[in-house]
Amino acid sequence: MTRTARWAGWVAILALFLWSASATELSLLRMVEGVPFMLDFLRRMVPPDFSVMGNAVRGAVQTLQIAVVGTGVSALLALPLGFAAARNVAPSWLFYGARSVLNVFRAVDTLVYALFFVAAVGLGPFPGVLAVVAYTTTVLAKLYSEAIEAIDPRPVEAVAATGATALQVLRWGVLPQLVPQFLSFTLYRFETNIRAAAILGFVGAGGIGFYIQTYLRMLDYPAASAVLLVLVVLVMLVDFASSRIRARLV
């Protein structure tokens, strides 16, 4: 790349930023003016009102359950899709078909799917699970397919050279390379899904988000902050446990 091209690139990025900043009314002044209100908001949140602990924990448990079922079902659905979207395994018509479908469905985030499923099947945790499944399946399938494409063909050839059957080659040459990675990706998505499931309640799709939104609407800030604290603890616990397990997998 020439010097001029590099400079032109930087100028273009700067121009894009300035254009977007003015359009989004970026203003330091307005932020500073907002500081007293933010402080007031925070002040009203303390001390948290732990009398709503029962609701908070119930919501947290439901969020966890949505993430568990959603991630579990996604992992199962993503397995065949992952193989279909792997260039080195699938015939090209299947590969291109699967990749296109995945890219389309992955463009929409969990919360948008939740709006759709709440309208379709009604309020509650079930549309939340469907929303998690719709998005996570495509993400996991993409990650799985990349792991399948990165497989080392040499041990596979070595297993085939022992006179093993196709199934034995799959079991002893392919799976040992994939299973730890698949588990690691799935756990990572589970961590992310806890966060995603936490806001599903905002649109009526179950979990802890329902209580956060309800208390904020009722202007009951101490109760909202108690629920938020429970959410923080849940996320931290899941992240900690999951990353410990993932570190041992690879």
Binding site: R154, P155, E157, A158, V159, A160, A161, T162, G163, A164, T165, W172, G173, P176, Q177, P180
Partner: peptide, 21 residues
Amino acid sequence: LRRIRARIGFVFQQFHLLRRL
């Protein structure tokens, strides 16, 4: 082919083991 291969051992330059096993 599998029966023939089962009677022939093959040792590769770079071992070709399953490293996680």
